[in-house]
């Protein structure tokens, strides 16, 4: 296993009395797909918000490539090489698909270098070349989801946080997105995935983290995690054999 690119130690986020994320620690190894799973409200999206600096921590620390990033502004974390593709696509509706992706390239990790190449790469890997000149407002849900990924790829991140990239996609589209995620790992990227589609998670992940009610209850290889009794009780429940 290679060195961890991201280390979260005891990260906590309270909203009043409620601890949305409570004392969660994990490490993400470089060039892997790590999945974060758990029932609705388990704190998965909150963890993404904490990692990107969108919501401040109330406890703990986060290091990216050995550097503390908690407390940094969102755009600074992005510039260090952490990109996020949203669960609900947040396109720049008034811009063309190409310009959407170009924003990612212009403000990505290395700043404005090889913008055209990075833009084309994002469009190609997400299979959006055919609709590149269309306004983002005209895309289908599946295309928008792919555009989110394209925008994030164009930013040339080291770590891609993908928030339910498969939600609402048909099986063919899902397989395409999964293949492109594995392809990104092949090119040196690390992926942290939040996903509800369990078969997809088992297929694509090198490691799985399981959250329940804001706490980490399991952390291991997919096949081990599915056999963990606490996971079966908390999450897989009725689906378990």
């Amino acid at each position: 296993m290679s060195a961890p690119i991201l280390v979260a130690e005891g990260i906590t986020r309270r909203f009043g009395q409620l601890a949305a994320v409570a004392d969660v620690s994990f490490a993400v190894a470089e060039r892997t797909v790590t999945s974060l799973i758990g029932p609705n409200g388990a704190g998965k999206s909150t963890i993404f918000n904490l990692l990107t600096g969108y919501v401040p921590l109330t406890g703990g620390r986060i290091a990216f490539r050995g550097t503390r990033i908690d407390g940094l502004a969102t755009h600074r974390i992005a510039r260090l090489g952490v990109a996020r593709a949203f669960q609900i696509a947040r396109p720049f509706r008034g811009l063309s698909v190409r310009d959407n992706v170009k924003v990612g390239a212009l403000y990505g990790r290395d700043g404005p270098r090889d913008v055209a190449a990075a833009t084309e790469r994002g469009l190609r890997l997400a299979g959006l070349e055919a609709v590149a000149e269309r306004p983002a407002a005209e895309l289908t849900i599946g295309q928008l989801r792919r555009m989110e990924v394209a925008r994030a790829i164009a930013a040339r991140p080291d770590l891609l946080l993908a928030d339910e990239p498969l939600a609402g996609l048909n099986p063919t589209e899902s397989d395409e997105v999964l293949a492109s995620l594995r392809g990104l790992v092949g090119e040196g990227m690390t992926v942290l995935l939040v996903e509800h589609d369990m078969p997809a998670v088992m297929k694509v992940s090198d490691r799985v983290l399981v959250l329940d009610a804001g706490r980490l209850i399991a952390d291991g290889r997919p096949e081990d995690v599915t056999r963990d009794p606490r996971v079966i009780e908390a999450y897989l429940g009725a689906e378990a054999p």
Binding site: T52, Y54, A73, T74, H75, A78, R79, A83, R84, F86, R90, P91, F92, R93, G94, L95, D99, K102, V103, G104, L106, Y107, G108, R109, R151, A152, A155
Partner: peptide, 21 residues
């Protein structure tokens, strides 16, 4: 300009893409 257009469309998403809004 692209930073400003991104702000116009969705300031939070722009920030997360690295735009120093």
């Amino acid at each position: 300009g692209y930073g400003l257009f991104a702000i116009r469309e969705d300031e939070d998403a722009a920030q997360m893409l690295g735009v120093p809004t």
